[in-house]
């Protein structure tokens, strides 16, 4: 497989990084992170005082039942949602200091999202879906096309590029979503139950792909879910309950899954 160099466009966040020159061992860090929803008169504490440090290149799995706040946490880490209290640092950058546009830039260039329901644009082909974030980043058309093709080949969908999501299987759609998350070469991938909507075999393949990307590209992964197989490849496993961490252990650290 030929490795195409990721296309670099001007990163509006770079100046901020240089200015802050924050050096940390942790690629993601949170301090006393809280997220409270108002559901009518009831306050729902989705995330309560989470302190988290994620090392560069780590494959971290957060386990929890549905409603444990793990998805909300993931959204907070990926600048998709804003905390009620506490701070999130992504690659040293304090997200609370960023405005709407800069947060969009964080999502565009610093983190990649993979979702349980794939969340592909239904009217765009696989190729078009992967090109989308590249277009948002104003990558020249030819480069974007090449980069998307290369990413789709890397996730094993080289031949299915011109199909729209409804013509692809669940596993294939998730591969497209993974390729899309890699588009602007982020160092962090946040995955929300990536196998939750896949059969056992396909789920295993996706976990394998994520782990492989983690191992070969040095990408940091934060994966939330309740698929026990995730723990076999994880470097570290955190269990979450009612918006807070309840336990932490070393993961299986295996490179392949059965």
């Amino acid at each position: 497989m030929t490795e195409q160099k990721p296309v670099q466009t001007t990163d509006p966040l770079k100046a901020l990084y240089d200015y802050q020159s924050h050096t940390s061992d942790y690629i993601i860090e949170t301090t006393n992170l809280c997220k409270t929803y108002e559901m009518g008169p009831v306050q729902v504490h989705a995330v309560q005082g989470v302190n988290l440090q994620v090392r560069r290149g780590e494959f971290l799995v957060i386990l929890g039942v549905s409603g444990s706040g793990k998805s909300t946490l993931l959204h907070l880490l990926g600048a998709l949602d804003q905390p009620t209290q506490g701070k999130v640092y992504v690659e040293g950058l304090d997200l609370s200091t960023l405005d709407h546009n800069k947060l969009a830039d964080v999502r565009l260039r610093r983190v990649g999202f993979v979702f349980q329901f794939f969340n592909l644009m239904p009217q765009l082909t696989a190729q078009g879906n992967v090109e989308l974030p590249l277009k948002f980043a104003e990558v020249p058309t030819a480069s974007a096309r090449g980069r998307a093709r290369e990413l789709l080949t890397r996730v094993g969908l080289g031949e299915r590029r011109e199909h729209i999501p409804s013509e692809l299987s669940g596993g294939e759609q998730q591969r497209v979503a993974i390729a899309r998350s890699l588009a602007n070469n982020p160092r962090i991938i946040l995955a929300d139950e990536p196998t939750g909507n896949l059969d056992t075999k396909t789920g295993a393949e996706i976990i394998h792909l994520l782990r492989e990307l983690n191992q070969t590209q040095g990408l940091t992964f934060v994966v939330v879910g309740h698929d026990q197989r995730l723990t076999t490849v994880a470097d570290r496993v955190i269990e979450m309950q009612d918006g807070a961490f309840v336990s932490e252990r070393k993961g299986g650290g295996e490179v392949t899954v059965q």
């Binding site: 969009a104 830039d105 999502r107 565009l108 999202f113 979702f115 592909l120 644009m121 948002f136 998350s181």
Partner: peptide, 16 residues
């Protein structure tokens, strides 16, 4: 709505 959410999740700005 969902597509708009997707676009925002992968980095689209409000003005986009």
């Amino acid at each position: 709505t969902r597509e708009i959410g997707i676009m925002k999740a992968v980095g689209a700005k409000d003005r986009t």
